[in-house]
């Protein structure tokens, strides 16, 4: 919704341009276009396309990090293999599936909380009150703080012995004994969710706020005249109207959450129980030097994320600004 109107305009003006000009000028402009795009195209191919292709290739080999030039092709063995009736490979590796589960759980819980809280914050920022500009600046601060710094700040606040959160909860009588937030696998993922919600709710709120500010005001005035309750107006009018923007925001946040690395790596100190998919893959690749296995995990992560993108695009509700020509 945010971008589709701009895209449509651009498409129309491009057609006008194409018609209204002599063909030699058009040809020279098309040549120039390719010239202008070439450097970016080369760089993107070199640093994104080629490494991705190599990662996929490595997943079919027994490469090790010590010497990346010395490897042999082993087919699908990194994924699944059978020796003497016993199965090997990442696809039957409990640690891998555990990391997949952790990542999915983290994504669903944190993005849901961010969406609900983001709507609340956006509605507040959409109301006229003194200090609104200041408030908008305030909620941007968590977003601006580097993830590593947030993770360290929260690790300190969540410290089991000297942390301010345990102290606060003890004083309020909400817990009887200090909680080992980040060391315990049950609470560590909740801790990660807490930090992620703290950091990213403002992002969600700003995207929703942009959508709210584009809504026509006369609907609300009409509702007010008819005496419809604000709660009803929100669910019947506001929510359906901001749904496209909301979906775009949810998709971008989910894609981000699915590749979570920094936060979980720092907050839960690289532990096996709380590893996300990205943490698992890097551990295989770098800590255990198993480039083959690590690449297989990376390839699976790529496929999972690509699948999520394809499903959401195929659902057809969200058009990520394709070019209507």
């Amino acid at each position: 919704m945010i971008m589709s109107s701009a895209v449509a305009q651009a498409g129309v003006s491009a057609q006008h341009q194409a018609r209204g000009r002599s063909s030699s000028l058009t040809r020279s402009r098309v040549r120039a276009a390719w010239l202008f795009i070439a450097p970016s195209l080369i760089v993107v191919t070199l640093i994104a396309g080629w490494p991705l292709a190599r990662t996929i290739w490595f997943s079919f080999t027994d490469a090790s990090l010590n010497d990346l030039s010395d490897y042999k092709f082993i087919g699908l063995e990194n994924y699944l293999a059978n020796y003497d009736g016993e199965w090997f490979g990442i696809l039957i590796e409990p640690d891998w599936w555990h990391s997949v589960w952790n990542t999915l759980w983290f994504t669903v819980v944190s993005v849901s909380l961010e969406t609900v809280l983001g709507i609340v914050v956006a509605l507040i920022l959409n109301a006229a009150f003194p200090g609104r500009g200041l408030m908008r600046a305030v909620i941007l601060i968590p977003w601006a703080i580097p993830t590593i710094v947030s993770a360290k700040m929260w690790s300190w606040m969540l410290h089991d012995q000297f942390g301010v959160i345990n102290d606060l909860l003890l004083r309020l009588g909400l817990i009887a004994a200090p909680v080992t937030w980040t060391a315990n696998a049950d609470t560590a993922l909740w801790a990660a969710v807490m930090v992620d919600v703290w950091k990213h709710t403002s992002f969600m709120a700003l995207l929703i706020l942009a959508a709210l500010q584009m809504l026509p005001q006369d609907i609300y005035e009409a509702a007010k005249v008819d005496g419809v309750s604000p709660v009803r107006v929100f669910f019947r009018v506001t929510l359906p109207l901001i749904k496209p923007a909301l979906l775009v925001a949810v998709i971008f946040r989910s894609l981000d959450a699915l590749r979570v690395f920094d936060l979980i790596y720092v907050l839960t100190s690289n532990s096996k129980d709380t590893a996300s998919m990205s943490v698992y893959a890097r551990q295989q690749l770098v800590d255990f030097q198993e480039v083959g296995l690590g690449s297989a995990a990376s390839t699976l992560i790529f496929l999972i994320i690509a699948l999520v993108v394809v499903i959401t695009l195929a659902a057809g509700r969200v058009r990520l600004g394709e070019d209507p020509r």
Partner: peptide, 24 residues
């Protein structure tokens, strides 16, 4: 097509290029 490819690249998980980038 090229614009969509570029948008797709911005959604790449970083870890998916890690091994290839290391080699590069």
């Amino acid at each position: 097509l090229m614009l969509m490819t570029i948008l797709a690249v911005s959604m790449f998980p970083q870890v998916a290029v890690l091994a290839g980038m290391f080699e590069l």
